[in-house]
Write a protein that binds this DNA or RNA. Structure first.
Lengths: 131, 131
DNA sequence: TATTTGTTATACAACTAATATAACAAATTT
DNA sequence: AAATTTGTTATATTAGTTGTATAACAAATA
């Protein structure tokens, strides 16, 4: 799985790593049970510091997406382990709200926004429906 | 229009102000042509510094949502003035992507995410369809 | 046994967020 | 015309974040 860092971006590097790993899992490029590269090797690949990758991994763990086994490695959680709690659903909705609101105020219609969402789904190659 | 700041939030204050003004416009609580309160008076109301509100207003101007008339005030742009450029559409899609991806990886189905989007639309009281 | 692993600690530079205070000049109100 | 309000600009300070750098530790692995 390829991770590409934009060093000029206003999105922090550790956040870019987190998002791209999430997208990689969504795309199916990485499956539950798979081991993430060690923080040292991924940091070397990306040309960033070890701690930056480590921060990303801990963010992923906090989100309930991976499990870090100390001195061993990071493993992608199974879908069963990822419970999708009401709290998580509320968080997703909270994240969705400002994006949708901004789109609306800028003049996007509900149809346009739904269309964009479908484009995002398609880009992330959902196994359901489309295939 | 009521703006509520969560001082313990990890979302910066100026960003909270920006988002809530956008949501206020989406809800129709503020209409195009309306004048925003002066940076000083809003800052006093919220109990924050003038510069914090000023930063928010300039963010709104950069997004093409308001026009700041120096020494006079900030006015909400009309829908005609808000062009909704392809660049803006791309930005919205870019903002939508990580939120949707995270939801999916956490185990949310496409239906659940679409349902959440409709909840957000309902919460923002879209004049179309629902009413 | 040697290497790799995540962890922890410390330090540093650059940047962001937020506040504080002040002064300026244009716009508005009285 | 005078007083007030306005956004602007400048400077300074405090606190926190981001990212890097280096090092050492102990457990896991080869």
């Amino acid at each position: 799985m390829l991770i590409q860092i934009e060093f000029q971006s206003d999105v922090p590097i550790y956040e870019q790593v987190t998002r791209q790993i999430i997208e990689g899992i969504a795309r199916g490029e990485m499956k539950p049970g798979d081991t993430l590269p060690s923080v040292r090797s991924l940091a070397a690949d990306l040309g960033v510091n070890m701690h930056t990758v480590n921060k990303s991994y801990h963010e992923l763990e906090a989100k309930g997406i991976i499990t870090i086994r100390p001195k061993s490695g990071a493993i992608i959680c199974s879908t069963e382990e990822r419970a999708l709690t009401p709290e998580q659903l509320r968080q997703i909705e909270k994240n969705l709200k400002p994006v949708v609101a901004e789109g609306m105020v800028l003049g996007a219609t509900a149809e346009q926004i739904e269309h964009m969402m479908k484009k995002v789904f398609a880009d992330l190659q959902i196994p359901a429906e489309g295939v």
